[in-house]
Write a protein that binds this DNA or RNA. Sequence first.
DNA 1: GATTAACGATACCGATCTGTATCGATAAAG
DNA 2: CTTTATCGATACAGATCGGTATCGTTAATC
Lengths: 190, 190
Amino acid sequence: MKRAEKREHLIDVAAELFNRLGYHAAGVDQVIAEAGIAKTTLYRHFGSKEDLIVAVLKRMDEQFRNDMRAAVETSAKAPRDKLLATFDFLEGWFEDKAFYGCPFISAAGEYGERRSPVFHAAAMHKRLMVAYFEELARAAGLKEPSRLAEEINLLQEGAIAVAHITGDPKVAARAKAVAARLIEAAGEAA
Amino acid sequence: MKRAEKREHLIDVAAELFNRLGYHAAGVDQVIAEAGIAKTTLYRHFGSKEDLIVAVLKRMDEQFRNDMRAAVETSAKAPRDKLLATFDFLEGWFEDKAFYGCPFISAAGEYGERRSPVFHAAAMHKRLMVAYFEELARAAGLKEPSRLAEEINLLQEGAIAVAHITGDPKVAARAKAVAARLIEAAGEAA
DNA sequence: GATTAACGATACCGATCTGTATCGATAAAG
DNA sequence: CTTTATCGATACAGATCGGTATCGTTAATC
């Protein structure tokens, strides 16, 4: 395994542990034990645990948005259906046994200081998600795409939280139904 | 200060620290230092830190729901307006400088095992919130009050998460506007 | 005023935390 | 084949973690 691959593997292992146990509860020793590397190596790649967390968040952000984009593009052709398809992607996530709620919300909860690099990375992800929704709304030629994107985002954040607490993936469909009404309303007299 | 008062004060101090720093990040030593009591006393009242966390969650649950009920009753008379008034209460919460996101969602994130007493206490609060929304929807004579309550809950959970991440309390008004549309739709041909 | 229970203070326990220093082995690059 | 990084392993550092034991003192109760 080359250096770059080792770094990626380290981030993957850390991501799973942070999500399952929490960012504080999962220790560096656990990460290196599961990754099968020495602690020295971890600290050669990342200056601190916080740096590792930020790297994990950035990686999860890219992966999540790329996966959602890919799923949306293959399952929907019409621009409006793409907006709705994001909820189907969420439902698939909720059904995954490795779903422990939103890792970005959890990170923001554990590192609440707004100037913290961890909080900043989490907030950045959420901003990019809203930007994606607005991009889809704009492509669909809907009214007030910025406002609609924020409303879609509200529903998605709510769905994630409720799915985590209740364990019921079907809330994604509930949120989707509401979103469909909002989209329909934003399409009238466009 | 009597024993019962001391216990209450202990819970209040712990709640503030847990919310601001996180449940793992805030240590028992910090709680007793801020509360001005001995560690022995804390462990006479609560068998473990986890017991304290559960007590904090139960207290926050009662307080939150009572405060929301009181605010709703004084600010709205018509049953439908009461449903909408819950969003005004949220906005007031978001404006509080001691708003660090939803403490129940954070607790569920840090204690992710679904059989954990902490997770259970957090889930119980959310169930009671939905029950309250359904109670209001039913009193307003709206169609499908159970479904509407879940939709309202979706919007509220989304608003809490977004307000935490963005720091903008006005998302409560955004969510309220969407809720108003759902309520209107649930009132047609009732 | 005597009894009793809860208290604060303190020291301590073993475990775990993040992070560093050391050093021999390994593997890639010239 | 030799040089040069990077590696794993280990030990260690200092701090903090949750939790307990001890003990003198305060304060409520009868």
